[in-house]
Design a protein around this nucleic acid. Structure first.
Lengths: 210, 210
DNA sequence: TCACTTTTTGAACAACAGTTCATTTTTAAA
DNA sequence: TTTAAAAATGAACTGTTGTTCAAAAAGTGA
């Protein structure tokens, strides 16, 4: 009984916390970090402003918690996929499909993530911003490991694996960004083959290549 | 005399304006738009806060003027280069070299530009933010024209030119970003061959390609 | 229903930053 | 040197927003 009572309280607490996070995601995605006010979020979440502070100790903490949770989620997915024992090309295909699917389901988050990815302001500050930035770097390094494997096995040209990872991420980001701002909707996954073809085979016609 | 007097005033006015823009560039690059205060900029420029408003009517105008000037500068350079009558591959090589050189000389601006490129907040507002965003789009379209030409001439695979442009920009952005945040300096131009090799020829070994 | 605890609330607080403007300083012609 | 116009200044104004907290509401067990 004691157990169950606490357990329900706990569940309710987490539910409210989740609602606040969802509301924040929506508002931050629409307006960005600084222009978003705590009362914007409170209104969206249908709580009083003061209530937010029972769940998060500051606006920054709320923001970074939001990002951190999702980044961890996608990182976990990617990590699992990349540790498979198949060819590098195959693992890359799988992981892109996975990511595209995740983005498709998390448009709001994606907006926040993209805005945050290239922000420099936080890199100086301790814990919060640094934590996010590190996770982004970890992702690149996971990818670089696969590239390294691919180079060693002769699947890929003999190039710097980190460069290969950056190139892939660059192409992907570009298509994802385009998809995000495009006024008319199309499934992101429809660009997967294009991304792969360009990254793996380049854009030049075979016969022309020197 | 009348002429000369006005002319010197004019020169002085423009010189001061330029100093303010330089100072702003430095501060915005270091702290980002919102955390930067007008008195930060005034201190850096060695003017009083009020003085800034004699040259720019608001913080936003100062910020966007700063970006707009430079974007126009690089766009002009790129446009000239891309309108040459050489092969698509050649024009792309030239334009990347040009861009890398420009970035090398404008690190502070580049930080601002990258942060701004992926910001969504402004896209709604009139004139200011929209103007910048349009110029970014123009750049992509200039590139797409070259790609289209390359496809028609058989230099490139038969793919959507806009996709090709996005892919190239993606790879470039990724390497530029990496260069910008790298703790140890290396010339950006040293990555040019890598970018071109991946974009033109892909990462897969020839014999493996299906 | 009552007493007590937990949670929620939103007005009030405090700090901050964009902008203004009365005053001071500088410029330059007389 | 005098004086009037122009430029520069930074304290003060104004609006805003993150955060707090005393009070209210909701929840809980008897």
């Amino acid at each position: 009984m004691e157990r169950e009572k606490i357990s329900r309280k706990e569940r309710e607490y987490l539910a409210h916390r989740g609602e606040i996070l969802s509301a924040a995601e929506k508002v931050f995605a629409a307006k960005g970090f600084f222009p978003t006010t705590m009362s914007d979020i409170a209104r969206e979440a249908e709580f009083g402003t003061g209530t937010l502070y029972k769940y998060f100790k500051s606006k920054e903490e709320l923001y970074f918690t939001l990002i951190d949770d999702k980044v961890q989620e996608i990182n976990r997915l990617v990590k699992t996929e990349l540790s498979q024992k198949t060819s590098a090309v195959d693992r890359i295909k799988k992981v892109l499909a996975l990511q595209f699917e995740f983005f498709e389901k998390n448009r709001d988050f994606l907006r926040i993530y993209i805005s945050e990815r290239n922000r420099f302001e936080w890199t100086v500050k301790e814990d919060l911003g640094k934590g996010i930035h590190n996770k982004m770097i970890i992702y690149i390094h996971l990818l670089a490991e696969v590239m390294k494997h691919g180079v060693k096995e002769g699947e890929f040209k003999s190039m710097n694996p980190l460069d290969l990872a950056h190139a892939l991420v660059g192409v992907v980001n570009s298509f994802v960004f385009e998809w995000l701002i495009s006024p008319e909707y199309y499934p992101l996954i429809s660009k997967l083959d294009t991304v792969l073809e360009i990254f793996l085979g380049g854009v030049q016609q075979m016969e022309r290549r020197r």
